[in-house]
Design a protein around this nucleic acid. Sequence first.
DNA 1: GTCACTTATGTAATAATATAACGCCAAGAA
DNA 2: TTCTTGGCGTTATATTATTACATAAGTGAC
Lengths: 136, 136
Amino acid sequence: MTAHASHPELTKNQALVFGSLSDAGGPLTAYAILDLLRENGFRAPLQVYRALDKLVEYGMVHRLESLNAFVACSHKGCSSHGAAAFAICEECGDVSEFSPDEVISLLKNWTESRGFRLSRTTIELRGTCRNCVLEN
Amino acid sequence: MTAHASHPELTKNQALVFGSLSDAGGPLTAYAILDLLRENGFRAPLQVYRALDKLVEYGMVHRLESLNAFVACSHKGCSSHGAAAFAICEECGDVSEFSPDEVISLLKNWTESRGFRLSRTTIELRGTCRNCVLEN
DNA sequence: GTCACTTATGTAATAATATAACGCCAAGAA
DNA sequence: TTCTTGGCGTTATATTATTACATAAGTGAC
C-alpha cells in the first residue's frame, strides 16, 4: 500500500500504460491512453482499464474522479506517501498534486470520531491556475 | 451562489427531479432518476441532466463525482453554506454530508498562496460506516 | 515433469453515463 | 410587434466502463 518502489515489476501492459501517463505529464482518459498505445498493439479498452487498476492499486497512478481521467503520481522518487489532493485548472488542464497532511489528518479525525473506516480519500479542487488568471 | 432559499421557483422538471432525490434520501444516478420519473412523463436523459445542472447551480443538489450520482443537499433549512464533504459507505451506500470548515479553510489557504482561483471543491471519503463495521 | 492455481492477456459485445444538435414554445423586454 | 432568453422535447451520438468468455504464462506442490 505504501508505494511504487515496492512494485518495480510491472507487466508489459502496465509499463506501457504507466509510460503513457508519465510522458503525458498530465491527466489522460483511458480511451486517450488506448489511442496512444494502439501502435503498441493495444486493441481494447479493457487492456487499459486492467493496467490502470493495478497501477492505482500500487499507488503509481491516481484517478481524477471529476475528470474521469488518470494521472501518474507526481512523487519524485516514488517514495511512500499518504492521500493526495489535486488542483485542476479548468483553463489549461494543468493538474497539481499536493499532500495536504493537515487536511487529511482533520478528515481522519472526523471519520474516526464517527466510527467510519476510511479507505480512500478524494480531494479535487477545480478552478483557474495562477498562469491562466494572469493571462485574462 | 449561496443557497436554496433564494431559488424557490423551480420549474416543473426541476421540482420533479429534486423531489426524487429528496424522497430517495440518498444518491441516485441520472438514469435512476429518469426511470423514477417516466411515469411523470420523462422520456430522455437530457430532461434529467438539464434539471440537475440547475439544481447543482442553485446549491440544492450535490454531485458525487466518485459515484457519478447526485444527492439532495442535506442542509435542513436549506440555508446558505460553504463547500460540502461526503462520507460514502461502500457497504450500504449511505452518504453523510458534512461541512469541514477547517479543512476548507486550509485548502483555501493553499490555493490562495499559489494564486489558484478556486471555483469548486470536491471532498469524498470512501469507506465503511460505523453500522456496517459493527455488523462485520 | 505435470497438476492445480493464480494472474495476465485478447477479444467481442454491451452497459452505463453524458452531450450535441435540432426545433418548439412561453414569458418578458424593447 | 419583434427580439431575446430560458425551458422543454426528441433523436442521435459520444464517452466512459464492464461483462463474459477464451487463451496463455508464471508459480508452487507433488
